[in-house]
Amino acid sequence: MNVFRLAGDMMHLLSIVVLLLKITGIKSCRGISLKTQELYLLVFITRYLDIFTNFVSLYNTVMKLVFLGTSSAIVYYMRYDRIIKLTYDKEQDTFKYLLLVAPSAVLALATSHVYTVLEVLWTFSIYLEAVAIMPQLVLLQRTQNIDNLTGNYVFLLGSYRGLYILNWIYRFFTEKHYRQWLVWTCGVVQTIIYCDFFYYYFLSWQNNEKLALPA
């Protein structure tokens, strides 16, 4: 494992911790898209089905369990916590699941390398992860007064994607059999989706102003 991959994983973990702290700390999930969170949970479930059959390292197994556990907790809090669920912007979070899930499923069926259930679901999870942030970005655009934690959450998540690209470039040059156009394409698409957000994030940081995305 290289330093980019480790740093990427840590950013990913940190983004989830920041989100959980925001939700449980201030008892509010304002500005957070439940749809994106549910899609991420679906991504983790479909990707980590191999958790008991394909042992890579203790690190991988523990991280998989942590990602599954924390994303389930976030969805649970937003859906069922007596106080927190009242702060969810349901009317604003209108992105259609099917718009993201259906193309991912079709692409997974069309392009999976081998046709086993695990492999097709793994491929599906790669496609879905690339676009799962979209409901969140749309919601951010509609939210006035984005709080710092929400902005930082999306920023950390974007950093994780950026670092994974560096990890792939590193692996491409250091590992003989590391060829995966699928993961590359999806990763780049996913990172491009964040570009607009990054632009406004840095702008607000530079001018010391609150983050706001133009509608």
Binding site: H12, S112, H113, V114, E119, Q180
Partner: peptide, 10 residues
Amino acid sequence: IEGGGAHDEL
């Protein structure tokens, strides 16, 4: 790696 995919990544 199976399928050339990054199955050892998260």
